[in-house]
């Protein structure tokens, strides 16, 4: 406990400083983000990881700004890595000592096709409509480029 207190008080300012930067950033959506100095942490995310994250997140990220914010989040998270947690179990849920509720096997829901389809922008004959699947994003960029050069 004492060890933790020492570490914490020492890092307090650093943590708070980074927290300030990060949490304020989240409110700057309508303004241009200012460049952040992260001299004390040298966090770099490589291209492959970034590409992987783009594929896994399926959100287009404004590459320079997005990368900066990501690296900053990681730097912020890195502060806790060296805190001693030996012999501590993860707290997955505050309800870890409760038992999950078991429902009886009876049909109580469904039979509401209209409700299910109500908010869908595109439907056909009561199906949801999706484009063809499983074409990785990178292929799309290449294909589109080809289309552009052709036309």
């Amino acid at each position: 406990m004492n060890y933790i207190s020492t570490i914490i008080s020492y890092n307090k300012l650093q943590i708070i400083k980074s927290a300030v930067r990060n949490l304020c950033l989240k409110n700057l959506s309508t303004r241009q983000a200012q460049p952040i100095d992260h001299k004390e942490e040298n966090v770099r995310v490589d291209k492959n990881t970034l590409a992987l994250l783009e594929r896994l997140s399926l959100v287009k990220c404004d590459s320079t700004e997005g990368l900066t914010v990501l690296e900053d989040s990681i730097a912020f998270a890195n502060k806790i890595l060296h805190i001693n947690t030996d012999n501590v179990d993860p707290l997955y849920s505050v309800l870890e000592n409760e038992n999950v509720y078991l429902r009886n096997d009876v049909v109580t829901q469904g039979d509401c096709q209209k409700d299910i389809l109500k908010n869908a922008v595109l439907k056909e004959d009561d199906y949801f409509v999706a484009p063809p699947g499983n074409i990785p994003l990178q292929e799309i960029q290449i294909d589109k480029k080809e289309q552009e050069t052709k036309s």
Binding site: R103, D105, V106, V107, T108, Q109, G110, D111, C112, Q113, D115, I116, L117, D125, D126, Y127, F128
Partner: peptide
């Protein structure tokens, strides 16, 4: 089973499209 794993919708594959579906 009669109903699905985590919802009370009917566990069957016949019938109307998108009808044995809970929210």
């Amino acid at each position: 089973t009669e109903s699905k794993l985590f919802s009370g919708a009917q566990n069957t594959f016949g019938g109307l499209v998108n009808n044995c579906v809970s929210l």
